[in-house]
Nucleic acid binder design. Structure first.
Lengths: 338, 338
DNA sequence: TTCAGTTCCGCAAAGCTTTGCGGAAAGCTT
DNA sequence: AAGCTTTCCGCAAAGCTTTGCGGAACTGAA
């Protein structure tokens, strides 16, 4: 096994100059004569020299690594956001290390530990749904470790955050249902403590109020954001003496669960029940019927989050909350009035 | 900003011993007296010491990083495999750096370059669909850089690989169609040079032969693995004077594209046309009608790939191809005989 | 010729860890 | 009491890069 990488030392030895000379020549330091500079640069490119990031890291105390923690890796929402983060990171010469909390509070804390041990320069986090205690985030702040959060956020007065305008999105959905002639609009929410649950709930209520519809607590269900639990929630709704004629779920997985339960009950979408979800473009078109949905600009969301991260890294900001607008794309699943 | 991490030096200074003593004490070297050992360990845990991976990397010439290159990040197939790889990597104390080729040959080469610059210890790769020239992989082999491939593989005599038994899977599909009473079975393939295209094709042909059905070249279509191009391929098939009554696609995205085109043509699945795909469990149930499909054990595939990687890293093997079995799950999309 | 000023380059330290080797102090033997 | 073995610990180098500082050699002027 031959040596993998050439070092400055190798180049220096071959040219019979010192390591410092090689280093300086490569970065056009004025102390180095034109002749030597050329020789060094030539050999360096010939030998395919590239500085050892480990050594640089040691020296500069910077690893150029960002840690990302998401609730799961396999949901399109997160992978798309990660994709966006990565593109910005690459532009800055950083790379990302991805970790999944699997929606577990314990794993979230472990992930933070591990990433810090790996000497990431900072963290980009989307909270697990189990996380109610935020003291582990507080610790990060006290240790002055750059943290940025997205979607499911907390401590926004101290942590920069990127979120979608959930309140507005929910209102749009309710109004859309109303316009289509639906009267009993149900909402399947997630864990109460999550900001997305709260905001989508308040938007739901505001929307109902706006449309002069009354709030029926029966029509507000809750689930743990899984496909299965969304199905169960929908089943409960369908068993009501006065069931809903429209429903929307807090995220895409939930929306699909709702659809599944409705179909299994033998009901038609959108004739019997209208459905709207918070989903991504691709899946909305793949399911049947095509799902009316509020689409997050996920890739853009990832990019914005990363940009905020680098601002925080340079200490240009300490906190700042970016609210992205969503778009309601009308498809068949809520087309009652057709 | 206080200092982020304590080093051996910090501990040594505080205890008035040398750095070497601290280092040895922490790893239970016999040269260190019980008393000193205890003191050191106590302070270390109190100060939350963890060795600097950069320094270790420099010393051991090992970064404990694996580079992964996939065609894209947002497809469930890949994210699930990555998830599997990551779990094994974690068990070995390694972490992964993920890079996407976006199905581009150029980006694939760039990704390799960048990951090597980041000093990953090896690479796990799924080829982009554009990649026909494999010289960049040959170079890796010559440089003795551990490489393992999965799904879309090449040079399997020199590179360990994990693949699904595509040939068998295709045969299963054809036989299933045949059993259900479908007679004109079409296949939408991908780029010819890909192993998955070839194997699924040969399985298709073998299956037809097995069922004593004749091969009609008209029923063999090709696409570039995108949703849109699969739709187009399906449209071409539907325009045939004698169109197919069954079709299967090379992967999940393609399968969804086929379904979309069929629905848009106003045809019923499975009555007019039966559809089967290569997909994952989740999406198969979400689409409508639920899609009969050959499911890859993606998570397991990721784990196996990673295990092979570590074998290769320890030079226990130089090449070895692992073939995983697939499972045909029958759902509505191909249930003609009901 | 001699001194000042350039020009060009090398030494060494810092960042952190591991480990072979050498050495001081203590205990033991004879 | 002198010499030998243990016991316990520190020095220093290696892995790679950057950079302040010192210094050699050379140019030009007086």
């Amino acid at each position: 096994m031959s040596k993998r990488h050439v070092s400055l030392k190798d180049l220096a030895k071959e040219l019979n100059v010192s390591i410092s000379t090689v280093s300086r020549a490569l970065k056009d330091h004025p102390d180095i004569s034109e002749e030597v500079r050329q020789k060094v640069k030539h050999l360096a490119s010939e030998r395919n020299y590239s500085p050892n990031p480990l050594a640089m890291g040691l020296l500069k105390q910077a690893t150029r690594m960002i840690g990302i923690i998401v609730p799961d890796l396999v949901t399109h929402f997160y992978s798309s956001i990660i994709s966006g983060i990565e593109s910005v990171a690459k532009e800055h010469g950083y790379f990302v290390v991805i970790s999944s909390s699997n929606e577990s509070y314990i794993k979230e804390k472990e992930s933070i530990e591990n990433l810090l041990k790996s000497r990431v320069e900072g963290l980009i986090i989307c909270m697990s749904q189990e996380t109610t205690d935020t003291s582990h985030f507080e610790k990060l702040i006290q240790a002055d470790i750059p943290v940025v959060m997205f979607d499911r956020v907390c401590l926004t007065d101290k942590i920069p955050a990127v979120i979608a305008d959930s309140n507005d999105a929910s209102q749009k959905i309710v109004r859309h249902f109303h316009d289509q002639g639906y009267n009993r609009i149900a909402y399947v929410s997630g864990p109460e403590h999550l900001n997305i649950s709260k905001e989508r709930m308040s938007g739901y209520l505001a929307g109902l109020n706006d449309c002069r519809m009354t709030v029926d607590p029966d029509l507000i269900e809750q689930c743990d954001l899984s496909f299965e639990s969304a199905q169960l929630a929908m089943k409960r709704l369908l068993k009501l003496p006065n069931p809903p004629d429209a429903v929307f779920g807090i995220n895409d997985t939930v929306a699909f669960g709702l659809m599944k339960a409705i179909k299994e009950a033998g009901l038609q979408i959108p004739e019997d029940i209208g459905v709207v979800g918070f989903t991504d473009e691709f899946h909305s078109t793949v399911v049947d019927p095509p799902l009316t949905s509020v689409t997050h600009p996920t890739y853009e969301m990832g990019r914005k989050t990363a940009e905020l991260f680098f601002k925080r890294l340079k200490s240009e900001i300490t906190s700042e909350t970016l609210v992205l607008q969503t778009k309601l794309v009308e498809r068949e699943s809520s087309a009652k009035s057709r």
